[in-house]
Nucleic acid binder design. Structure first.
Lengths: 192, 192, 192, 192
DNA sequence: GATGAATGAGTATTCATTCAT
DNA sequence: GATGAATGAATACTCATTCAT
């Protein structure tokens, strides 16, 4: 990679990074393109060189972060491990990642709850395959209650997301003990 | 109540109702005050007669709907019932209410995930007292795992909210069977 | 005068008084009719009963205050006094009145310098007759330089108005000594 | 200066010029930003590119015109001339400038009499230094009556401003004869 | 006379996007 | 690629005035 390419990539990345920070703090509609450009240290024009508009910029950001989140959950994932090990690894990975990257969660929640931005669904089929595999196997082996993978996914991780939000809102302290207890609770929710 | 008062109240209510519908469908920032007024069949000026501005209008709406949601969950709530009965009543009330009032959930999620609108926390202490009582008693009686009420609340209801969202997104079908199974799963999550 | 009439007159007066206070402090266009009504303790509707609109209200106020100012200048005026006595009486009356009624001056200056409000000139012919008489006599007697009364008027009183403004702006202190000196200066300006 | 820079400067200047014309004719509050933009032949947006808002636009205009007026009064000013020559030069410069630029005076009067706009005092210390020097020297040399420069300034020029207003209102005709007579009167006001 | 809810045209300002350089 | 001046439609909010009661 030569210097020129590097700079180009850096500029695009800088825009995405800045957008994430600004939006998670100020919200979509309180984050003008001009502010993104200024904060990222680039001209407004160049933003439109890398992204066709605000919508695409945000959609790109969403795809990146959503994917990154899935990948963080599945770090070190291997079907060699037991269902139990895999479940708790994912659970802990998710919480640890969320606690370490507060802006990610804020951005995703905003995006996913904004009717205005529902132009993209993204295709995460591949990224979520391991989850489906995990839950499917669990059901087949009689370890998990016989519900569809997506339902088991929500039963497992919706509380995790909710608790992380409580943590950042100052209502609970997500220490190791609570993480462990909550993970166990979620396991108990779906185990037979 | 005379005709005048009724009309006045109706106008204020019409504005709130219209705001809920529009925002849940279009989002906060894609819902101009002028559209709210037009859709509600009133002038823009009168909106500012009843609410000091867009922010107050939305905050008022939030308070109303949040309270209404809590009340719907606690319909027929009585400490005479067993923990188990109370838990499942609330769980089912919540899901039924959410399914019957799709806009409420969309609005609440948007509001609670918008950094721009975090000017109000509202005081729902009284409204949520029964939940705290329920979980506290459960912990004291050794029926629930020893976690704080707010954590037990999230373990219990975060999956419910997530599944309702999946339902409206078309990914799952929240029929009686699924509701029952999911409620059981949440109970199992927090029971000792 | 019965109670009813008194109240009516009081209400009209209260509106005019309030308008003067608000406008001299906030300016014409930063003084809504609704604020005038509220501050005066009356309904907006009643303001339109006494005055056909904002313009008439302000015009009425202007006429009253302009007239009152002329009358204050001419208090105790009599052609029995010498030109010199009359001149200094008027000069001191004007300054004393202006210093005692800060809002009057502010209002008049605003009004007279607002192109938007030049709908009324008012007819103060009668009120200013003594001034014309004074200056005309002075010219005829060879005491004043031979200029038209209106020019002599401005040479005499424009500095007075300017100095009162300086006083309220904090740049000069209009004490008795300065008033006396400035009055003498103005007399010297127009005397032969 | 290249074409681009020239155009840019022209645009900013066009906005200021247009604002002056419109405000002197219609008043501050009857002069919407949209009208300024339209009349100046630019978009509304660009006005906000050069000025942060209406207030700053007007303040900038005030500073420019106030300064220009002082400079016009002091054209060819030199301490080599006698007090008498300097006084009459300034006096005539002021009147000539005011008569030739009717909008300037109207704008300044409006601005200085608007309580709403008293956000800026500006710093004209340097610009008015010659006036202070002139009056101070006059007092020291026993030529002028012993009053502060600002008082002597008002005694000297307040009548000039008043007469120019009368001229534009059609009440007097400021011909050379009257100018000369009035200037003499003002000189007589402050001379010992 | 008196009220104040209601109207809606008007206003300052913002911001996504374009394009000449 | 890169800039940032320029556009103009959109939007929250104001306020003089009206009128049913």
């Amino acid at each position: 990679m030569n210097a020129k390419n590097k700079e180009v990539i850096d500029k695009r990345k800088a825009i995405l990074k800045t957008t994430l920070d600004l939006i998670s703090e100020r919200g979509f509609h309180n984050t003008p393109m001009s502010l993104i450009a200024k904060t990222a240290g680039v001209s407004t024009g160049i933003v439109y060189h890398y992204f066709s508009g605000k919508e695409e910029l945000i959609n790109e950001l969403y795809k990146e972060i959503k994917l990154e989140t899935f990948q963080a959950m599945l770090a070190d994932y291997s079907e060699d491990f037991s269902l139990n090990e895999r479940f708790f690894d994912i659970w802990h990975n998710y919480v640890r990642y969320s606690l370490n990257h507060p802006t990610r969660g804020l951005f995703l929640e905003q995006f996913e709850n904004s009717p205005y931005l529902k132009h993209l669904e993204g295709d995460f089929t591949q990224a979520v395959a391991p989850f489906f595999s995990l839950f499917q196997q669990g059901v087949e082996q009689g370890v998990f209650i016989p519900l569809s993978p997506i339902v088991l996914f929500d039963l497992s991780f919706a509380p995790a997301a909710a608790l992380v939000k409580r943590h950042f809102a100052g209502y609970v302290e997500m220490d190791d003990e609570l993480i462990k207890a909550a993970a166990n609770a979620c396991w108990n929710a779906i185990k037979t």
